[in-house]
Design a protein around this nucleic acid. Structure first.
Length: 450
DNA sequence: GCATGATCATGC
DNA sequence: GCATGATCATGC
């Protein structure tokens, strides 16, 4: 039994710090990890803090008002990132909308978090992992404004009877992630519609958690911010702020924009330079604090004068040998597409071949279309396992990976420096690096250009 | 004029 | 030097 009372943040934090660097097998009094009975969070609550994990549903440290969260970080490219989103409380659709943000269950439970970060190390057993960093986390004010606006977006969908349409892509930092299996039991009722909605939980997005890890914990330098004065988004949202800033420039030609914004460049990234200038950013929009925290990926789209899209949209290359060990449901690409939000910056050619800024919009992939991408993904993996077939043609070496003519949403195509920029195939040999692309015809259906 | 293999250019 | 966003080129 544990007789210490964890009724102040200091006591809780002190105890948490005592676990830093101690292998879990030393902490785990009831062999939960070695026997697979319970996760690391349970083990910490039980063995470090002495709670009976079966009899508790209140905030973890009720008296101190703190929620304990044990969450993994992982090293990649010499930096730490959060391995996953931080899942918070399950959303009670029937109840949550009755409250204001500050009276909500979300806020009641999660206004102050004790974060214990452990390092996930591949090919090392759990019992040998340990807590790396501990932090008592309060949301910075500029984040809290955005989180409140996220919470309100989720509530607005519940009030509109559209809880079944909630998606993680709706929001910036605070997401509503699915929780539980896909079985019928993980569906719940909603107050303003008879359609059952998937059970979801509030969560802090992985990109947001990664930012916390890199900046608060490992002290990485501050990135440029788009919102310089957070009062300016108090009554709207981040997205509105961005769209409102760009709106006055819509309809202008690339030349006019360059003149007006003092840009003299003929660079291939001219369009993204234009957006940076409009948003008053010195560097790249994608490297701003808000874009990183919300995992917003800017994409430039060029529309032909006749309304077709000039090019399909490329994504990072995939690794032939690693992708065949994934399942679609847990795949890198599904994770990428599902968690990313896109800022589409759309330019359109006039009849005399000049580019005009036409439209700007935030976009994330609808669930049905994501499932279509899943089919393309599966066929890609199947083909890679079986062995890719090549045919020499007059315009290069053709392969039998999924083509844009085979699926309305996505296809696979090379994405390399040139045809010699190859990667090994699981069945032997190699081929030019490839990635998934969203079909140009599909993009057209999503951007609603007249 | 689309489909698809190939490649360019920037930034880290 | 590579990853990645963006774009070119040509045969069907």
């Amino acid at each position: 039994m544990n007789n210490t009372k964890y009724d102040t943040p200091e006591k809780i934090l002190e105890k948490a710090c005592s676990a830093i660097g101690v292998p879990f097998k030393t902490i785990d009094k009831h062999q939960r990890l070695s026997t697979g009975k319970g996760n690391i969070g349970h083990m910490i609550e039980e063995s470090l803090y002495g709670y009976d994990i079966n009899s508790r549903s209140e905030a973890d440290f009720v008296e101190a008002g703190i929620e304990l969260k044990v969450t993994p970080i992982v090293k990649s490219k010499n930096k730490y990132r959060s391995k996953e989103r931080l899942v918070l409380n399950i959303i009670n659709y029937e109840e949550e909308y009755l409250h204001t943000f500050k009276n909500s269950h979300f806020w009641e439970k999660n206004h102050e978090l004790l974060l214990m970060f452990y390092e996930y190390i591949k090919n090392v057993s759990k019992e040998n992992w340990s807590i790396r960093e501990v932090c008592l986390f309060n949301y910075p004010e500029e984040d809290l404004i955005i989180i409140q606006s996220d919470w309100e977006k989720i509530i607005a969908k519940i009030k509109a009877g559209r809880a079944h349409e909630i998606s993680e892509g709706d929001t910036m930092y605070l997401g509503a992630c699915t929780k539980g299996s896909t079985a019928a039991k993980s569906y719940r009722t909603q107050p303003f519609s008879t359609i059952p909605a998937k059970q979801r939980a509030f969560s802090l997005k992985q990109s947001y958690m990664t930012y916390i890890v890199q900046n608060f914990i490992f002290g990485q330098k501050q990135d440029e911010r788009i919102i310089k004065n957070f009062e300016s988004i108090k009554n709207s949202s981040f997205e509105e702020f961005v769209l409102n800033k760009i709106r006055p420039y819509i309809g202008k030609s690339q030349e006019e924009l360059c003149a007006q914004l003092n840009i003299s460049s003929s660079a291939k990234n001219l369009n993204s330079l234009i957006i940076s200038k409009i948003l008053d950013i010195k560097g790249d929009v994608k490297n701003t604090e808000e874009f990183k925290k919300a995992n917003i990926i800017p994409k430039t789209i060029r529309v032909n004068a006749n309304g077709t899209i000039k090019e399909s949209m490329s994504f990072p290359v995939f690794n032939f040998c690693e992708i065949i060990d994934e399942t679609w449901y847990e795949s890198t690409f599904k994770e990428y597409l599902e968690s990313a939000r896109f800022l589409f910056v759309i330019f359109r050619f006039s009849n005399d071949n000049k580019l005009f800024l036409n439209k700007v919009m935030f976009w994330n992939i609808p669930p049905d279309d994501l499932e279509e991408v899943g089919k393309v993904w599966q066929k890609t993996v199947d083909t890679l396992r079986k062995g890719v077939e090549f045919t020499k043609t007059s315009r290069g070496i053709c392969n039998n990976l999924p083509k844009s003519s085979e699926n309305k949403v996505a296809h696979v195509r090379p994405h390399a420096r040139n045809s010699l920029d190859t990667s090994p195939l699981p069945t032997g040999g190699s081929m030019p690096k490839q990635c998934f692309w969203l079909n140009s015809s599909y993009i057209k259906t999503q951007i609603d250009i007249k």
